[in-house]
């Protein structure tokens, strides 16, 4: 009896916390979707309308002609996936080392990483641009991917180091005593245990790269290599914002992120908990 009441009370508390926050989060997105279904002269009326009087899908068709949307999707995909892969590949060994090995210069390395985070790209954009010109990396996929990965190192290493450190050393040590090499131990045991951390890092890096604006604006000039974020700006003219199109594209842009999240969410949930019980 007591326990059941306690559980119900817990559940009530959970809903009391979750529902209002989610409603606030949902509010602008609903408006975004409703607006993307409105005809342009229904957007600026006072008082504003909630739902489109007669919803149309025309905006979603038109945008593919107005801008090279398919191409922008492709480019954004290349930037984001490339960045995610490169970042994780480079950050994993580094985080392992900083979490597990006490080497001279460890603090210096962590400090260096932290330092890089303290400079917003805005601050260094001009020097960066000059350097990219020097490396012949303007208007290339690799220029963007490498730069993005560099800016994501700090976060990834910090997060992954944190996760690696939170995993008890005993399991690895046992494996190593059993005769596994360090490399095998890391790949077979540590990395699976750190899955939630890696997954969180993947999500973060992907989303960061997917939505980045300033660097891609500065390094990419040819329309052929524009990302979605640059493409979206095609709807923000000097004198007029095409809200219905802007909202339609924005909504479409969030879909890949949501799909990624759906694919990965399972791992985020099960991840370590399952691994630790075994």
């Amino acid at each position: 009896m007591d326990i059941r009441w306690g559980k119900r009370l817990d559940l009530l508390l959970v809903y009391l916390v979750v529902v209002p926050v989610l409603l606030i989060i949902l509010f602008p997105f609903l408006i975004m979707i409703f607006t993307s279904l409105k005809v342009s002269n229904e957007i600026f009326v006072s008082p504003p309308t909630w739902f489109p009087k007669k919803p149309i899908l025309k905006n979603y068709i038109d945008i593919w002609h107005y801008v090279k949307l398919a191409n922008y999707f492709k480019n954004s995909g290349i930037y984001a996936i490339g960045t995610t892969v490169l970042t994780i590949l480079i950050a994993l060994p580094a985080s392992y080392a900083t979490a597990r090995i006490r080497f001279r210069g460890r603090m210096f390395f962590l400090f260096l990483i932290l330092v890089t985070q303290m400079f917003s790209p805005i601050v260094v954009i001009i020097s960066l641009y000059k350097m990219m010109a020097f490396y012949h990396s303007l208007n290339t996929y690799r220029g963007i991917i490498v730069t993005y990965s560099a800016f994501n190192q700090a976060f990834s290493i910090w997060l992954l180091t944190g996760y690696f450190s939170s995993i008890p050393k005993d399991i690895e040590e046992a494996a190593m005593i059993d005769g596994c090499s360090r490399f095998t131990t890391v790949v077979r045991i540590l990395i699976p245990l750190a899955k939630p951390g890696i997954v969180a890092t993947v999500v973060f890096v992907f989303i960061w790269a997917w939505n980045e604006f300033l660097l891609v604006l500065t390094f990419i000039s040819t329309n052929r290599l524009w990302s979605l974020t640059l493409g979206i700006y095609g709807f923000i003219g000097k004198y007029k914002v095409l809200w219905n199109y802007l909202m339609a594209v924005s909504f479409l842009t969030t879909i890949p992120v949501i799909i990624l999240f759906l694919l990965i969410e399972r791992h985020l949930v099960s991840g370590l908990t399952a691994g630790a019980i075994k």
């Binding site: 989060i25 997105f29 975004m32 604006f213 979206i232 949501i258 999240f261």
Partner: peptide
């Protein structure tokens, strides 16, 4: 929950 993060 991730919606605000998914949009730029």
């Amino acid at each position: 929950l991730i919606l605000p993060w998914a949009a730029s």
